[in-house]
Design a binder for these strands. Sequence first.
DNA 1: TATTTTTTGTGAAGTATTTCACATAAGCAA
DNA 2: TTGCTTATGTGAAATACTTCACAAAAAATA
Lengths: 222, 222
Amino acid sequence: MTFSENTEILKKVSESTIHRLSLYYRSLSLLEKENFETISSKELAKRERLTSAQVRKDLSFFGSFGTRGLGYPVNELKKKIAGILGIDRIWKVALIGIGNIGSALASYKEFTRQGFHIVKLFDNDQRKIGSNHKGIVVSDIKNLAQELEEDGIELVVLAVPATVAQYIVDDVIAAGVKSILNFAPVNLKVPDDVHLRNENMSMELEYLSFAMVNNHIPKRAK
Amino acid sequence: MTFSENTEILKKVSESTIHRLSLYYRSLSLLEKENFETISSKELAKRERLTSAQVRKDLSFFGSFGTRGLGYPVNELKKKIAGILGIDRIWKVALIGIGNIGSALASYKEFTRQGFHIVKLFDNDQRKIGSNHKGIVVSDIKNLAQELEEDGIELVVLAVPATVAQYIVDDVIAAGVKSILNFAPVNLKVPDDVHLRNENMSMELEYLSFAMVNNHIPKRAK
DNA sequence: TATTTTTTGTGAAGTATTTCACATAAGCAA
DNA sequence: TTGCTTATGTGAAATACTTCACAAAAAATA
């Protein structure tokens, strides 16, 4: 596939499709463990509470991975999706902020399982700096930019208080990092060439609350 | 507003609109602290990287809260949104699973701030049961159904291993709980009258990874 | 091998969501 | 009070996303 074809395709692919690829990947991992060789779009859809057409359409943006009459080869499709999502490799991740959420994320197995390896921890608390946290020595945030560059960090997870998040993000960007996952409940300003995604853990609780007070009939899980 | 009018309106309101209301609420809280009296849809949109039309359309599903030529009254709009989202009250929440993620969530201030009060903790680990965790004594998960009912828990946050999540959810539902926020990376089966939302913390990392390998030009934060 | 069944891949149709654009209303200034 | 400016609220238009429906291809069956 040439680059121009690649960008052509990407223009058509929505955020929702990418998120569903994550779901398919998870289902395929499970199917693999259950020793399934193939899976139909119908069965995969059922497991993720989607329609089979949706599954086929999502996959069709990236190629033809199935066999008519048979379905998709579980192991192969899993690998293809890993390639599309870019999780068929190791990403070097730094985690900034070893508080409540940060500590939990540092030990979160799911990240490692998907190739996101946290190789660096930062904090500004003198009691934490230098201490060993799950095999990683916590660095002083004062050396942030320098250490990020030295270690070739490509992705930063931010778990710091909302009040300081923007200052830290500015440093992270100055160090050349192009991808940031932000857990602070604040809208960060980043340049156009930096990828920023926000994880807002209250949002889904608020959706539940909305559903309850408005007597909303649930349709399906996110 | 009558019940039938209410359901009429809700039919038209999308999940995205509700999620954006959460964002507006957060912005308004900040604007309140900054002593803004009013805010235009244009300025609110700018802060959330949306369009002003989007903001006005979202709000218009629920009423006319603004003044032409002036904008929206910050404090009043914040209260209105709180009412719509159902966060103008206290929700009694139980947290199940005091592991990595669970511990972090138990201390997560943002939940409390929005009216989600974790009043009950459950685990199956004998070392944790009976111990005091942020002022709450950890209960044995064996007494789950009984204690959920006794305490009138309306909402459950699930932070248990994927392998046992379904069994626990079945118990939670048997106890009459109608709303569940699930952090386990698994698709849970629940009856139609139960609200289930999933928090998948790897999903956004995968989106970043996708964006990086596909040379995706970032548009805006989620 | 021929026939039936299954299931993909995909244009077209159908929905849903977002943006446009403007009439309307309120503030503000003189 | 009049005219100018600002900004809402909302149908209509434009986009985006999902589902339909079916031809095509491969597997299963006999």
